[in-house]
Design a protein around this nucleic acid. Structure first.
Lengths: 144, 144
DNA sequence: CTATTGTTTGAAAAGCTTTATTATATGAGA
DNA sequence: TCTCATATAATAAAGCTTTTCAAACAATAG
């Protein structure tokens, strides 16, 4: 029982859910592929290696559960599938993604720098910002 | 033949496509519902009023075409359907969206203020930013 | 005007992701 | 270990989107 499993177990317990091998294996796969932005089908493939009897529906359910518990984050690149990544942050604010329109590579940006914009939004629109999702499309260094 | 149709006709001609009543009606609907963020099914419903014999597939195809020509923009709120809005800007940079997590309302923000962040990204990652999509999640003034 | 060619369309089918159903299996606490 | 609510696999079904295909249509050439 490693520390990741402990965290999972605690978070599940908080909400009255159970720790199962399927949930553990799914989190392990997302955690073990940090920076890869796997889609559900790919996650299903990897999870099957550890847990061959798991069903696709369980993977979908489990990923939704993990997202509710803020252990993973959804990324939608409008390419027809949902991708997930392990959530390395403790706070709610996600990092940004750069998406190369030439090779499709996804680069993660840790800079935030949105405080000023969010402040202005809160002042102008009286809108309380809780989270944001920011994607930049362009050309990466290799492709240009 | 109004000016919107002229623009559509010109853009279609540029790429070797034809101006058809279905394409015209679809653009009219998206244009006539600025600020509404309709999904494809809703657009289909409105287009049918002018063009009762139109098929759903044609609406899907037409919206893709209009997006390629940068006359409309896709918005994905991860609610299981694709939404479109009329593209009011001449340049590539889209405005931002505020999404209320309580009532679901979508508010448009014309502030950009991302220049500094984009500059920093270009310097740090040698990534040439062409476009961005920014969504803020939170609570709107009515709900708070 | 008619024939030819290529585009566009509507209807239907197929595709893909996600959700619902149900009987069975299993985790967690007593 | 026993009990019971939860979780699961398998399957079916739903939901949204794309593709297929034959027919309709527009543009052009002869």
């Amino acid at each position: 029982m490693d520390s990741l499993t402990d965290i999972l177990k605690d978070k599940l317990k908080e909400k009255g859910f159970k720790l199962t091998p399927q949930r553990r294996a799914t989190l392990d796969v997302v955690f073990g592929n940090k920076g890869k932005h796997l889609n559900t089908e790919e996650i299903y493939g990897f999870v099957k290696e550890k847990c061959p009897e798991i069903g696709l529906a369980t993977v979908y359910r489990t990923l939704q559960l993990l997202e509710e518990m803020e252990l993973v984050s959804k990324i939608n690149l409008d390419d027809g599938c949902i991708r997930y990544e392990f959530n390395t942050h403790d706070d709610d604010h996600q990092h940004h993604h750069l998406i190369c329109q030439s090779c499709g590579k996804i680069i993660e940006v840790e800079l935030d720098l949105l405080d000023q914009l969010e402040q202005e939004i809160e002042n102008t629109y009286k809108f309380k910002v809780i989270d944001h999702k920011v994607k930049f499309f362009g050309i990466c260094s290799k492709c240009s």
